[in-house]
Design a protein around this nucleic acid. Structure first.
Length: 479
RNA sequence: CGAGGUGUAGCGCAGUUUGGUAGCGCGCUUGGUUCGGGACCAAGAGGUCGCGUGUUCGAAUCCCGUCACCUCGACCA
């Protein structure tokens, strides 16, 4: 008991020590465990179930927009990486190289994929001959390996799970449209499934993907006002087509080089969910990805009829398509209440002798402090889905409020410094010079996030150097 | 790689200054009483003190070495 009380106190540290709170919650709710190799993460069933719901919902959307799933090998010849100059420069420091099999040295070194552009482009160069072969719209669900120096569960691990789309188009315009389209798919998905509001925009040259012509990102604001890049969509132009010699014979009888895109989101989204919706009592999971949407806690289980009523309610809700769990273990009710709150279960349903007598169930929402209320037991099949939808709305609105309240328009370096020190996003004007970006990073540890599509100016001059501004851009501290 | 810190039961820690029987809390097991906000009583199980050397009658404790992990910097979805 003492330990759990202490846990609640630690969780309450959310305001002072957000990263500590984050790892504590993840470990104590059994989402993950640390792997034996530094920087690796074991995703436990409760955490993996969240990923499965993310996968299912996002996969539907990817398919609805015309893409198909495929799978490419995780081992890539090192020489492939070397073909695109920027790409190898960007990834070489963090790739895991396979040099030996047993004692025998390999004549051609292999990398464990840090991303799949190179191997996929190699295949595309064989698959594509005619304009009739285009567009190619393929997506892959896979794991990738990037040996980062410091790691944090879900946000940055040596190996992570993701979805990577790789498309090929006949024209530059089509490729750009695809890049933006998928960014919007992510945004719709984040809003309607994860209850996360996003900032969409274009990355600066410095922050763009190694090998891309342009990178667009979705940025999310964590509860503490820091930014998290939640996904990216790249317009690769013809860079990889050139490097891998992808050509097609067009209608006019001439060979042309196609234009490509790639886009991905990762298990980092789970980290975003935790850091956006969580509170001092632990996880708060958005209903549409919660492994358990409603937990039934029988009270005074030994009393006549309690367990039978709980079981019958469980069966009814299950049949109604709700992800429901009945906890009939002999832990005390109070223990169970805290357990499911900590684990972020959106709804708790208590059922005890008093409820049975009144033909009601006692319901409690995880997302609000409004306390318990009762509902007629016969109405739950229809009421629970409504409540889940309300919880989703409420989470989205709260996150949107936070984003709005913590975003400031800044005109100069003093205001920018104040904004990031107050844990706010700084919406700034920028001259476009990378040295201004670098200076802001060095002085205030804030990086450029992205340049929103709506470029309506909020000033005339660069926040850093005071010269004429070219872009509207967000600066923020980021995870 | 630069700076700091920690390794003792499944988890969290005390014990190390001053060498002398391996401790505490939680968790776990069994039995009983409980059950509407982390219940209580009783009895149990569980550790070559990160690893290796050395000093000593005797080392978790002292010396030397080594490994691992954590935090902060540079890199990143």
């Amino acid at each position: 008991m003492a330990k759990e009380k202490a846990f609640v106190t630690e969780i309450a540290d959310i305001n002072e020590n957000f990263p500590q709170w984050y790892t504590d919650v993840i470990m104590k709710t059994q989402l993950v465990d640390y792997g034996p190799v530094k920087g690796t993460m074991v995703i436990r069933p409760y955490g993996y179930a969240i990923w499965e719901h993310i996968q299912r919902e996002l996969d539907n959307r990817i398919k609805e927009t015309g893409h198909e799933n495929a799978y490419f090998p995780m081992f890539i010849p090192y020489s492939y990486l070397l073909k695109e100059a920027e790409h190898v420069e960007g990834f070489a420091p963090e790739v895991a190289l396979v040099t030996h099999v047993g004692e025998e040295e390999l004549t051609e070194k292999l990398v464990v994929r840090p991303t799949s552009e190179t191997i996929i482009c190699d295949m595309y160069s064989r698959w594509i001959q005619s304009y009739r072969d285009l567009p190619v719209l393929i997506n892959q669900w896979a794991n990738v390996v990037r040996w980062e120096k410091t790691t944090r569960p879900f946000l940055r691990t040596s190996e992570f799970l993701w979805q990577e789309g790789h498309t090929v188009h006949a024209t530059a315009q089509e490729a750009e449209e695809e890049t933006i389209k998928m960014l919007n798919v992510y945004a719709e998905f984040a809003k309607n499934v994860l209850a996360i509001p996003l900032l969409l925009g274009k990355k600066s040259e410095k922050e763009k993907f190694a090998g891309a012509v342009a990178t667009y990102s979705i940025e999310a604001m964590m509860k503490d006002g820091k930014s998290l890049q939640a996904g990216t969509s790249h317009n690769l132009g013809q860079n990889f087509a050139k490097a891998f010699n992808i050509k097609f014979l067009d209608k006019d009888g001439t060979h042309k080089m196609p234009y490509q895109t790639s886009w991905g989101v990762t298990t980092r989204l789970i980290g975003a969910i935790i850091m956006i919706h969580g509170d001092e009592r632990g996880l708060v999971l958005p209903p549409f990805v919660a492994p358990v949407q409603a937990a039934i806690v029988p009270v005074a289980m030994h009393k006549e009829g309690v367990l039978e009523n709980a079981e019958s309610l469980y069966n009814r809700l299950k049949k109604a398509g709700i992800r429901v769990k009945l906890d009939a273990t002999d832990n005390s009710p109070g223990w169970k209440f805290n357990e499911y709150e900590m684990k972020g279960v959106p709804l708790r349903i208590e059922i005890g002798p008093r409820d049975i007598e009144n033909k009601v169930a006692t319901v409690s929402r995880r997302d609000s402090n409004e306390g318990k209320f009762t509902l007629p037991i016969e109405s739950l099949e229809t009421e629970i889905p409504k409540l889940l939808a309300q919880i989703h709305e409420n989470l989205y609105n709260k996150a949107s409020e936070n984003l709005k309240n913590r975003t400031r328009i800044v005109k100069d370096m003093a205001e920018l410094e104040k904004a990031v020190n107050d844990n706010c996003f700084a919406l700034s004007m920028w001259c476009g010079d990378p040295s201004c970006e670098a200076k802001i990073k060095e002085l205030y540890q804030a990086t450029s996030r992205n340049m929103p599509f709506d470029q309506t100016p909020v000033g005339e001059t660069c926040v850093c150097c005071g010269k004429k501004a070219k872009h509207k851009i967000y600066f923020a501290r980021a995870y």
